[in-house]
């Protein structure tokens, strides 16, 4: 059962298997998880779920992760507090600069291992709490 005290997380990945693996792993740690399988779906769920953290795959058909991140960060009320973690291999300096420019807060390298992913989620939640207070 999701722990009601933990803040909601939105997992966005067009690959159903990936999304499912992340969902189960984080849900077992008590986080309430909502899954979206595309950029549009993620944006549609954004105001309802009001996620504290979004785990956002970059390579998606249609609206990609960069665009979704940009739109979420510009949301008049939720944009300020949401932490966006890009799920992608940002090898180059240029990729990371690009991610900063778009407003991303953190990234998890693909292929990811689950403990790293959970640690990344945790440090961003901690940062979000610190910034809220």
């Amino acid at each position: 059962m999701p722990n009601a005290k933990l803040p909601p997380i939105l997992v966005v990945d067009d690959n159903h298997d990936n999304a499912e693996i992340i969902r189960q792993y984080l849900q077992n740690r008590g986080y309430p998880i909502t899954v979206a399988h595309g950029g549009d779906e993620a944006l549609a769920l954004f105001e309802t779920v009001r996620p504290a953290v979004v785990l956002l795959d970059v390579m998606m058909p249609g609206r990609d992760g960069w665009e979704v991140c940009r739109i979420m960060k510009q949301h008049p009320t939720l944009g300020r507090s949401v932490r966006v973690i890009m799920v992608t291999a940002l090898d180059e300096w240029q990729d990371k600069r690009e991610a900063l420019q778009i407003g991303a807060d953190d990234y998890v390298e693909k292929p990811f291992d689950l403990p790293t992913l959970a640690a990344t989620v945790q440090r961003n939640l901690a940062m979000q709490r610190a910034m809220a207070s």
């Binding site: 944006l43 549609a44 954004f46 105001e47 008049p76 944009g79």
Partner: peptide, 21 residues
Amino acid sequence: PSGSLEDRVERVEYEQMLHDS
């Protein structure tokens, strides 16, 4: 909320277009 996916996406986009965040 309900409504089709596109409409809800549009709502998020519209909000962003109407008021500078």
